[in-house]
Simulated assay, not measured.
Amino acid sequence: MNARPAPVHVALVGCGAVAQLYYRPALETLEREGLLRLTAAHDPDPVALDTFGDSFPSARRLTRFPEVLAISPQLVIIASPPRYHPEQTIAALAAGIDVHCEKPLAPNLAEGERMVAAAVEAGRRLSIGMVRRHFAATRAIGRLISNGNLGPLGSIDCFEGTPFTWPVRSVDFLRPVAGAAGVLQDIGTHCLDLLTWWLGSPSAISYEDDAMGGVEANCRIELMFGDVPATVRLSRDWARPNRYVITGRDGWVAWTVNETNHFDYGISGTGYAGDLTLHEASVGVRRPTLGAVAGEFDEAFANQVRVLVDPASDARERVPGADALTTLGLIDRCYASRRQMPMPWMVPAWRAAT
């Protein structure tokens, strides 16, 4: 009988909201399964560090990043603000440590390319936290598209957003000079990653937002995937449908954002549509049967770390850092060609000033 591999030693960098809300339960689950051990957590803010560290009594609490490298973990999870991702990731890779970096990989394409090149040079793994790729629903939708089940596509509409409630600890999150990420770099990273994962790179793109020299709260992107038009609308200040609709000649799918195991599917010419709940496939004695309902969000989030530490996992489920470069390039193109979106409620003097 083969001995179980020793748990992978992991350090987490950045103990803010994403760490507390998502990485903490994921790491707790994987520790209970014996797949990893959190050996250290780092944050320069001692309050954030202690809040996170209380869930992992055996983990060292480090306020300086070089201390993380000094203890030589096997995997570092970078969950710090995006402006720190390149420096911290490249340093960890150079120290011979694999890195899993939360999205966005970097503030821009050039920095992302430096990070990917550093991983190649060091011969280490660099993965990116694109949790939506781990949803059963998004995988099934991608397969329906690639298999041609919808026929030639006709249109794509993505409308996502809600009033901003993320529990930030600093106003730097909203200050451009501090490397703040607007709605495009935030939820837009997820949206553009899904579209390019399903459809490839767009042939054309146009962009408008309401930044006016600050950080955008609303934006609109028009893309062309070959001859298929796609519209993306994102907002941080008003509730939107949070729904993606992809229409083809032979059918359509509609997916509600962050529904991990559910989407709607219509078949053209039948007059029928269904709300599908995805299950694990289970082969019965005589025929395939439905197994358990596919995992929820917390399970999907944990899975993106599981595939890095579990030798039995499917390595094809890892999302390599290089996969983030397409989205980073699109975001750079958007910002380089940005136009001010129409805001008819502004008084004439304000419009003239902008």
Rank of each mutant, 00 (worst) to 15 (best):
L36H: 04
S146N: 11
P163R: 10
L153F: 10
E160K: 00
P82Q: 02
L93Q: 06
R169Q: 13
A91T: 03
P167D: 12
I77K: 00
C158K: 00
F164T: 02
E111W: 04
E113V: 15
V120F: 09
A118L: 06
R114P: 01
E111M: 09
Q88Y: 13
L35I: 01
E113W: 09
I128T: 02
A106P: 02
P66N: 10
K103T: 08
A110K: 10
A110H: 06
E113P: 05
W166E: 09
A110F: 09
G151V: 07
A92Y: 05
H100T: 03
L93Y: 07
A59F: 00
S55Y: 07
R37M: 10
P167R: 07
M115R: 05
V116G: 06
G151K: 07
G142E: 08
V116P: 04
L35H: 01
A136G: 12
M130N: 04
R143I: 04
F159H: 12
E113T: 10
R61H: 10
E160M: 10
V168I: 15
I97H: 03
H100V: 06
A94N: 14
T51P: 00
P46A: 10
P152N: 07
S155M: 03
T138A: 04
I141M: 13
E111Q: 15
Y84R: 11
V99Q: 05
F173M: 06
T89Q: 03
V47T: 15
L144P: 02
L126K: 01
P44D: 13
D45V: 05
F56A: 06
V99P: 05
I156H: 02
V99L: 05
L38S: 03
L62D: 09
A136N: 04
H134M: 08
D45F: 06
H100G: 07
G154K: 13
E121F: 00
R169L: 07
R139G: 10
A119R: 06
T165W: 05
E87R: 14
E160N: 03
G34L: 08
S80D: 13
V47H: 13
R61E: 12
A40H: 09
L62S: 12
L75R: 11
F52Y: 15
R83F: 13
E102Y: 08
A106F: 03
G148M: 03
P152I: 03
V120M: 11
P46R: 13
S146R: 13
C158S: 01
L150Q: 09
I90V: 11
A140I: 02
G142M: 02
G123I: 02
L62H: 06
A41C: 14
G161Q: 03
L144Y: 11
N149P: 00
E102A: 08
A118T: 09
R175G: 01
L174Y: 14
L174D: 07
D54A: 15
L69S: 01
R124K: 07
D157E: 15
L35C: 01
D157P: 01
I77Y: 01
P44H: 06
H42V: 01
P57D: 12
